[in-house]
Computed example of a mutant assay.
Amino acid sequence: MTARIVTYTDPPWLIEDGKFDSGLATVEREVLGADVDLRFGPHAEGRYQITSPQMFEQVSGSEILVVYRRQVTAELLDAAGPRLRGVVRQGVGIDNLNVPLLTERGLFGYHVPDYCVDEVTAHTASLALALERRLIPQHQTLKGGTFDIYAGGAPYRISRRTLGIVGFGRIGRAVAAKLGAFYGEVLVYDPHVGRDLAEGYRAKAVDTLQELLSRSHAVVLHCPLDEVTERLIGADELRCMRPDAYLLNTARGKLVDPVALGTALNEGWIAGAGIDVFHPENPHDDPEWKPVLEHPGTVVTSHRAFLSEDAEGSSRRRVAELVRDRLAHRVPTVGLLSEEAART
């Protein structure tokens, strides 16, 4: 009997202390069993070689691919060969899954849309409250040897301020419930949902992004990345914001123009920013992010809003179960993206 090949192109949980260890794939082997030939993408010095020729060799013969950061391309699918049935994204975002291509090829596509809602909302709230309460300058000043209650300036009373949420999907709604409790008003902009939904979360829908930006003191981005939302926040949008407002992004790095954000911070168009996501992934790889990273009014983290031991464990198990079910010709519906292929 020919082995069922499943290839994980770049699973981050197999890299520990800068070293790759396939023995850490305990959950995947438990769920998939001994009948599955479990493979992993090429790696060197603690990094996956996601664009290397060796990647194409490694995926050859795969029945299912599991991707993390690796972009799904025609070349990757061709390299996998005729046995390929579909691709699973180990994460929430789908911008690298290339759903139109999978649909065109008759392949199924999945992601895990809700495994880290608690983590992302808590992280978003942490960034917002750190900015509102000026925690970073307080921390740095006191650690530096000076006791000064006014370091960073006097904060505003949050209950008199307005929270604006761009994108009202699973995470946006959870942010309204969690972080919205601190603010006096919550505004929502999402052209894909009806205005009544926002009222169910004690929020108010607005008709335009500009209205939300001009009225909000803290703007949080929770919309998906696509052709419409790429560089959604640029110079024109930042100029719409209040000078005492903060911009927060824990969604996708490409939603924000880094040059415009750096200018907005340095020229005082906005008061500060909390950023967890960048493009490229490491902002130090692109000098356009340098003014943002160095500005005293920013709080930045290394794309970890989704991270917790519980969330990572849930994601790994759920992905493995999706793969197991599709190998058994079962069709789970949670996370299904390319519906045309669901019948195959």
Rank of each mutant, 00 (worst) to 15 (best):
Q58P: 11
L131T: 02
L221W: 08
V27L: 03
L24M: 11
T263H: 11
V112T: 14
D196K: 13
N282V: 13
L221Q: 06
E267F: 06
A205Q: 11
V112H: 09
E28S: 00
L293T: 05
E132Y: 11
E227C: 09
R69E: 10
D118S: 15
L84F: 01
P11G: 07
L238D: 07
P82E: 05
G335S: 12
S314F: 12
E227A: 15
A34W: 08
Y156E: 12
K19R: 13
G109A: 03
D118M: 06
G81I: 04
Y156V: 11
K290M: 10
P113F: 00
V193P: 03
R39D: 13
L212E: 04
F168S: 05
W289R: 04
V175N: 05
L97G: 02
L179F: 08
Y150S: 14
K178Y: 13
E30C: 04
V193R: 14
G167L: 02
R239M: 13
T2K: 12
N266A: 14
F306I: 00
G262T: 02
L65F: 01
I270C: 13
L32I: 04
A128H: 03
R304S: 13
P280A: 00
V99K: 02
V175D: 04
M55P: 01
R4H: 13
R29K: 14
F168R: 09
L238S: 06
A79D: 04
L76V: 04
G172Y: 03
R202Y: 08
T121V: 13
E185L: 12
A264E: 10
L77E: 01
Q210D: 15
H303D: 03
E309G: 15
C116K: 00
R318K: 12
L248C: 02
I165N: 07
I15S: 04
A251D: 07
I275R: 07
L255G: 05
L14S: 08
A130Y: 07
L209P: 07
P287G: 06
L32T: 05
Q138H: 13
G272M: 05
T121D: 14
L179C: 05
V36Y: 07
G167D: 02
V256C: 09
P191D: 09
V6K: 00
G145D: 02
K204R: 15
G180N: 00
D276S: 07
V92M: 06
T333D: 15
P100I: 03
T124W: 01
A264C: 09
T250C: 15
T121Q: 14
R326F: 12
L107Y: 01
S60V: 06
D114I: 07
V186F: 06
S216T: 10
A25Y: 02
A203F: 01
N249W: 04
P155N: 00
G272D: 03
I158V: 15
Y115N: 01
G172M: 01
V175T: 12
H123D: 10
V323A: 03
Y8T: 00
Q71S: 14
G144S: 06
G106I: 01
G167P: 05
L255A: 13
Q71W: 05
A3T: 13
T9M: 02
V334R: 15
P82R: 00
V220P: 01
E294N: 12
D118K: 14
D95N: 15
G46E: 07
S52N: 04
L127M: 11
E45A: 14
V256L: 08
S62N: 06
S214M: 09
E227N: 15
